Simulated scan of single mutants.
Amino acid sequence: MSKTEDAIKTLVEVYLKSAKGKENLGPKDFQKLVEKKLHNIMMDTDNATAVAEMRKGLDDNQDGKVSFQEYMTLMGYLAISLSDHVTSTMGAPSTEQKQDKKEEAE
């Protein structure tokens, strides 16, 4: 299995384990998931009020729970934020560097 496949599998497994066989994550289950699994890449994961506000922001259908689709919205946001951080830390490749890589690939 590729790293990409492993990552997707892990996303699904974490959600399913956190949901404990239910279709959605309730407030307590979402709080635990954020505290235990996302504390290294998010701030205020131990702040119940901040996590509740995040859950409300994700809760498109306003049912008080986080569905898998809503969870994936959070994962997408985190992935984009992490990518932006890594890119800014490393410095975005210049147009010349991109062209050099393209020529090397050909």
Results as ranks from 00 to 15, higher is better:
residue 34 V to I: 15
residue 50 A to H: 01
residue 71 Y to C: 07
residue 91 G to Y: 01
residue 8 I to L: 15
residue 37 K to L: 09
residue 86 V to S: 08
residue 73 T to P: 02
residue 103 E to S: 05
residue 10 T to N: 04
residue 34 V to F: 01
residue 44 D to Q: 11
residue 28 K to G: 02
residue 77 Y to V: 12
residue 67 S to T: 14
residue 86 V to H: 10
residue 50 A to C: 06
residue 21 G to T: 08
residue 8 I to V: 15
residue 90 M to D: 05
residue 47 N to W: 05
residue 49 T to E: 15
residue 93 P to Y: 11
residue 20 K to I: 01
residue 54 M to H: 05
residue 69 Q to A: 13
residue 61 N to M: 04
residue 95 T to A: 14
residue 87 T to G: 06
residue 21 G to S: 08
residue 46 D to C: 00
residue 37 K to P: 01
residue 89 T to L: 05
residue 15 Y to R: 00
residue 20 K to F: 05
residue 85 H to Q: 14
residue 8 I to K: 00
residue 17 K to V: 07
residue 42 M to R: 04
residue 106 E to A: 13
residue 77 Y to K: 12
residue 4 T to Q: 12
residue 9 K to Q: 07
residue 29 D to F: 02
residue 101 K to Y: 12
residue 26 G to L: 04
residue 93 P to T: 03
residue 28 K to C: 00
residue 77 Y to A: 08
residue 58 L to R: 12
residue 90 M to Y: 07
residue 4 T to L: 13
residue 6 D to Q: 11
residue 6 D to P: 00
residue 32 K to T: 03
residue 72 M to V: 06
residue 4 T to D: 10
residue 69 Q to W: 05
residue 44 D to Y: 10
residue 31 Q to G: 03
residue 103 E to W: 02
residue 40 N to Q: 15
residue 82 L to S: 12
residue 31 Q to K: 12
residue 85 H to C: 08
residue 1 M to P: 13
residue 18 S to Q: 02
residue 1 M to V: 15
residue 82 L to G: 12
residue 74 L to E: 02
residue 49 T to I: 07
residue 15 Y to E: 08
residue 60 D to E: 08
residue 86 V to A: 11
residue 88 S to T: 14
residue 68 F to P: 03
residue 35 E to M: 04
residue 12 V to M: 07
residue 101 K to M: 15
residue 54 M to P: 01
residue 53 E to W: 05
residue 14 V to I: 14
residue 70 E to M: 01
